[in-house]
Structures are given as structure tokens and as C-alpha cells.
Nucleic acid binder design. Structure first.
Lengths: 158, 158
DNA sequence: TTTAATCCGAGTAACTCACTCAGAATTAAT
DNA sequence: ATTAATTCTGAGTGAGTTACTCGGATTAAA
């Protein structure tokens, strides 16, 4: 359970990549995809979300690319992940901003599991809010890697 | 993201139901499903996992049913949910018991996101370990409810 | 004008989810 | 002994999600 999808994983990787080059140069998706070993066309979808949420800025045309809209220390992982993966809530009863959504049970006054999900959500959100992008950036940009095709999409069952 | 499935949700509800009747009587699945408003045949699948994990015991035949194997205060939600939903890890790099699984990136020494998922996992597991089943049980068994069919499976998008 | 890039919408194979269906095995009550 | 109530087991399924790909339009530097 509770696994994050490649949207979140790849998106965070992209953000870390951009943080390494913050205030240095624009990064094109082809560069990012080569250095991080991720499929370009899939990244296009992800970075659209990041741009719509104003976490990154883009420049079109030749020698275009992306850069962070804000310094890495002002970008919290809660923001990044909620943009990429949707609400950080483990259950429909609860939403990110505190607004509540009705479900069949709580209308009938019997949502015994609610406090469980509420506490879990609180834990998830507060940890993700406490981590900023610059904490995940190692000073040196590592050498470009190539991940073999077969080693993607690994999942643990039980 | 981070949403739990109905396996987890229903399974926790079943455990809460059984906790209410702990040391009182056996509960049949048809009773549970009627009182909680959940589909019987789906519960059969879920409770099999709970039984295999020795969280509940069963008695077959007429007037059979289920009961908790241990008192509710000795059952942690981390146990229940990992049985129902699989590992509580947000990413394949990390597993519940601390044993590590290789992924394409960390073998190449470039798993920049690892510490993020590690901290998230730590938060999730420690909160779920801190909550025992009896904390979720309200003293009085509530009146049986009937959840209208349409109101299941509600999900928030973004 | 060529080339390199972002943008955009659609399509898709594989998988997961949330169940249902059919029936066998076991036990209590009659 | 028969019936009824229950747990057990395995298989199937429609809808949705995931993790992509494909084809092309748009923009801008060289």
C-alpha cells in the first residue's frame, strides 16, 4: 500500500535535477531524460503539471528548457507531490486543505476509521512539508546514468 | 496519491467490528456485512488474509464465525494494514522490515530520492504502530447501517 | 530555413481494483 | 439423516489506472 507512482518518483527526480542547475542554465527535457535515465515523452506529461502549478518555468524554441520558478529551499515536497500525484489524503473523507468531503458512512454517523486516516494523513503531510528540495540535492551533479530498460517499474508484492 | 484501497478500509472496519464483540460472541461475515454495509463475498477474500496472518480465528459450520486472536489493545494498525495492503513502503527501494531491495538507480549510486521515501515511510510506519485497535472502537455498537450502493468507491481527484 | 526545443491530444497494452460466481467442505440444529 | 448456516477456495470480469508511446503543432535560436 501507500506506494507512490512513477509520476511522483520521476517528477521528484526532475525537480532535483533542476535544483542542481538552478540559476546556472536551462535544462531541456532530452538532457534531463538522458542524465536521469527516464523516458522523455513521459516527462513531458509530468512537467506540464509542474509548470501549471508554477513550480517550474519554461522557455520554448531551440536552446529552450526548464528552470525552477523559486529557489530550491523554498520548495516543499508536499507541494511537489500533491501536484504530481493529486491529494495527499489516504482516504476520500479527508482532503488536503482541511475541507471535508462527505462519504456514505460519516453522513450516517459511523465513520469509525476516520480518525485513523486523519492521523495518518497528518503524519504524511507534516513530514512532506518539513522536507525542502535543497535537502535532496547533492552538491555535485553525478555522471549521467543509463538505467537498463528491464529494471524500471519494480514493485514489491507484500 | 497515498490513498488506501477498499481492502484496507473494509478490513479495518471488519477488525473494529470484531473488536466490539471480542470475548462476547462469534461474528459471521453475513452479520458483519449487514451491520457495516459491505459486500459479503469481498469480505471473504479480505478476512482470509487476516486469518492467514493470525489476526483472527475462525469457526466453520453453522453458527460459526470469526473472532480476534488477540485482545484489541495488542493489535497495532501497522500489522493490520500491512497484512491487507502489502508492504507499507512508498517505494520499492524500501521494505517494511528494513531489508533493502535493489532498484536500478541505487545500484548505480544515484538514488537521490531515497532519503525522501525513507523519511516518509518512517512517518507512516511509526504512526500506524502507535495506534492500536481498541483506540478505534467506540464503546457502543452502533445501529446497523445501510450504505446506498452509489455512495461507495468515492475518490477525490486532485 | 533548418533545427531544437516546448506544447498538446490521443491512443494503448498491461495491470490493478473491486468486486461476483460457483461450488466444496464443515458443523449445528431439527 | 437432512437441512441450513457457515467458512473456505478458485476462477472470472468490467471498469478504471498506470506508464507509457505516437503524431504533430508551435515557438525560437542559429
Amino acid at each position: 500500500m501507500m506506494h507512490i507512482s512513477t509520476k511522483g518518483e520521476y517528477g521528484v527526480r526532475v525537480m532535483i535535477d533542476l535544483a542542481r542547475y538552478y540559476n546556472k542554465k536551462l535544462r531541456s527535457l532530452t538532457d534531463i531524460s538522458q542524465d536521469e535515465g527516464l523516458p522523455v515523452q513521459y516527462l513531458e506529461q509530468l512537467i506540464k503539471k509542474l509548470r501549471d502549478a508554477d513550480l517550474v518555468m519554461s522557455a520554448r524554441g531551440a536552446h529552450g528548457g526548464y528552470q525552477l520558478s523559486r529557489p530550491p529551499e523554498e520548495i516543499r515536497m508536499s507541494e511537489v507531490l500533491s501536484v504530481l500525484e493529486g491529494a495527499l489524503s489516504p482516504y476520500a473523507c479527508l482532503s488536503v486543505n482541511g475541507a471535508e468531503v462527505a462519504c456514505g458512512w460519516d453522513k450516517l454517523g459511523s465513520c469509525s476509521t476516520r480518525s485513523l486516516w486523519a492521523r495518518l494523513q497528518e503524519a504524511i503531510i507534516s513530514t512532506l512539508e518539513s522536507i525542502t528540495l535543497n535537502e535532496l540535492v547533492d552538491s555535485e551533479p553525478p555522471a549521467p546514468i543509463r538505467v537498463p530498460e528491464q529494471q524500471r517499474n519494480i514493485k514489491i508484492q507484500l
